[in-house]
Write a protein that binds this DNA or RNA. Sequence first.
DNA 1: TGTTTTTAGGTAAACGTTTGCTTAATGTAG
DNA 2: CTACATTAAGCAAACGTTTACCTAAAAACA
Lengths: 346, 346
Amino acid sequence: MRSVDKAKRTTIKDVALRAGTSIATVSYVLNNSKDRYITAQMRTSVEEAARELGYVKSSIASGLKGKEMGVIAFLTPQFDNHFFLEIFFTIEKIANKKGYVLSVCNTLDDPVYERTVIERMNQLWVDAYVIIPTHRGTENTAYLRTHGIPVVSVERPLDGITDYDFISSDNFGATYEMTAHLVGKGHTRIALAYWDSPIVNLKERLAGYRQALEDGGLRFDEGLVKRTGELTPAEGSRITREVLSDSSITAVFYAQYVLAEGGIKFLRKSKVQIPERISVCVLGGPKWIEMSETRFAHVLQPGASIGQRAAELIFEKLEKKSTNNVQEKIACELHVGDSIKDLTVI
Amino acid sequence: MRSVDKAKRTTIKDVALRAGTSIATVSYVLNNSKDRYITAQMRTSVEEAARELGYVKSSIASGLKGKEMGVIAFLTPQFDNHFFLEIFFTIEKIANKKGYVLSVCNTLDDPVYERTVIERMNQLWVDAYVIIPTHRGTENTAYLRTHGIPVVSVERPLDGITDYDFISSDNFGATYEMTAHLVGKGHTRIALAYWDSPIVNLKERLAGYRQALEDGGLRFDEGLVKRTGELTPAEGSRITREVLSDSSITAVFYAQYVLAEGGIKFLRKSKVQIPERISVCVLGGPKWIEMSETRFAHVLQPGASIGQRAAELIFEKLEKKSTNNVQEKIACELHVGDSIKDLTVI
DNA sequence: TGTTTTTAGGTAAACGTTTGCTTAATGTAG
DNA sequence: CTACATTAAGCAAACGTTTACCTAAAAACA
C-alpha cells in the first residue's frame, strides 16, 4: 500500500561529499586513472565512501561524455534458430570477458521492424553491432556505417557494399557436398525444398545444388526445385506432399531446416518410410535432428567458428586495431546419417 | 585504406542552428510538447532541418535528464529454453507496441554472472526488468527493488521477499496431473528424473509427484526420485541407465525436459521400446517432442500466458497505474500422447 | 637559499538533452 | 489608451560524468 518513492541514485557528487573531496578526485579514483597522483589514504577513503553509499556509475552519463557504453547489439531475425543462437553464444562468451554485454534484439526478419530496432539501439549509442540482416540490411545500417560505428554482418551479406565485415558459412559448399553425396548414392531425381528469399547469398544454396548435379553428369531440372516464399513448417509440409506425388523423385533435400520440420512431420503422419520410400537430408542441425530416431543426413553450419570470427572482427574495430573490412566464408560439415538410401547396391 | 573519421553525430544544437532558432524550441518541437506555443512555420522548419541533417535523438542524454530509456531488460538463465523463449516472444510483442525494446541477456544460471549482468544493466539505467532469476535472485536484485525499479520475476520466485511481481506456471499441478495419469494407467513404480536445484519453487514439482502418488494410494519411495545437481542431457542419460537397471520400474517422468533429452537419446541408443519396456513422460514441450515419431506424454507450460501477464505487470508499474505486488500461478496443459503403457488392460 | 620538479587535488567546462523562467510581441477588454 | 491575457520563443540551469587546466604544497636540485 505504502508507496515507496524511488530512492534517488547515489552520484559521484554524494561520494565526493562523504569522502570530503571533489568530484574530480572521485572520478579519477573510481576509474583508477594513472593521469593523476592520489594518496593511498584518499584512495581508500573514496572507495569506502562509494561502497558505503552503494554508488553505481552511470554509463549513460559517461557515455554522453564520449566513453563507450559497453554494449554490443546482436540483431537476429529468428530468435529460435539454433544456428544463430550458437553464433550468439560464442560471441557473448568472448564479449563478456572483455566487459561488454550483448543486447539481443529480434528483427523478426521484417525489414521495417529491423529499421526501428536499429534506430532505437542507435539512440542508445550502442558501441557496435553484430547483425544477421534482412534483405534491407544495407539501407537499414546506412547511418551506422557512415558514422563509423562497427558493424559485422553474419551469415547474410549487406547487399551492394563493402564497408563492413562479413563472415558466413559456405552456403554453396553446403548444398554442393550433400547433393554430390546423393548423386554418389545413385540418386538422379533430387527435389530441393528451397526458400526463395531476397537474401542474396541464400541463392548460393541453389547454385551449389545445381553445380553438384551438373558435375555429377545430371541435368538440372527447375521442376525439382520446390520453392516457397515463406519460411514455415507448413510450407515444408506442402512441398513434401508435392514431392511425394511424383514417384520418380527418390530424395528430398531441405535447404532450410525449418522446411524440414514441417516436411518430416508430414512424412511421419503419412507413414512414409525413410529412406525406403524417400531419402531425406537437411541443411542445418537443430536439436530435433540430434534427438531423432532416424539419423538424418544433414549439413552442420559452423556456428561457433562464425561467432568466434565475428567477435574478433568486432573487437578489432572497437579497439581500433584495424580498419580493413573482410568478407569470409567458413565451411560446413557433412553428416551422412542413415536417411539416404544407397541406390547403387545391386 | 583511407581512415574515415567517425562522423560526428548531429545534435539538437545543429538542428537549431540550421532552423535559425534555439535548442529549446527544437526540443519542444521534436517532442511535440503541448506546453509550448509553436507557429506552424517554425515547426516545419525545425522538422525539415532535423530531417535534412539526419538528426537522431540521444536517448542517453535525455535519459540523463530523467526521461525513460525505453529499454526493458529480459534476463534468462537459459537462452535455448523454448519455454523461456516463448515467454520472451510474448513480452516482446507487447513491449514493442508500447515503444520499448527488450534487451535480452543471458545469466547462464550462474548467480555470480547474474549479478554482473544486473549491475551492467543498472548502470545503463534500464527502465524495468523481467527476470527468470537464479537462486541468488533476491540479493542480486536488491538494488533494483530498493530503488523502486520495476522487477517482474517469471517462473522462479525471489526467495524470502514480496516487494516484486511474480508470475509462474503451476509446477505442483504439472507433476501432480501427469503422475496421477500414470497412476491411473496402473503404474506403481514411477521414477522421477529430478533436478535437485536450489530454486525453491522447483521443489513443488517433487511435491506434486509425491502428492499424486499418495492420493492414488501409493507409498512415496525416495529411492525412485533420481536426483541430479546438474541440469544436463548427460545426467538425464545417467539417470535413465539407473532406472533401467531396476526392472520393477515401469515408468520414468522427466521433471525437466533437458534431462529427457539425454534420457531419450539413451533409450534410443539402447533400443529400449517405449512404452513396451518403459513408459516415458516429460515436463515441458520443446520442438523435438513435437517432431518426434513417438508422441511423448508431456505437460505444456503456459509460456504465452505467463509472458502476457508479465508484460501487463511491468507496464502497470512503468505507467504507475499500480504499486501493488502480485504473485500468480498459471496452470499447465497435460498432453497424453502414446508413450505411456496402459497397465490396467487385461 | 632560491628555483625547479614532483605530488596532490580543486574548478569548471563540456557531453546532448529537458524545462523553468524570461522577454517580447501581439490581441483583447475595459 | 491603458491593462492584461495570450502567443511565441530565447536563456540558462540542470542531469552525472570526464578531463583540461589550474594552484599549492612538498621534495629535489642547484
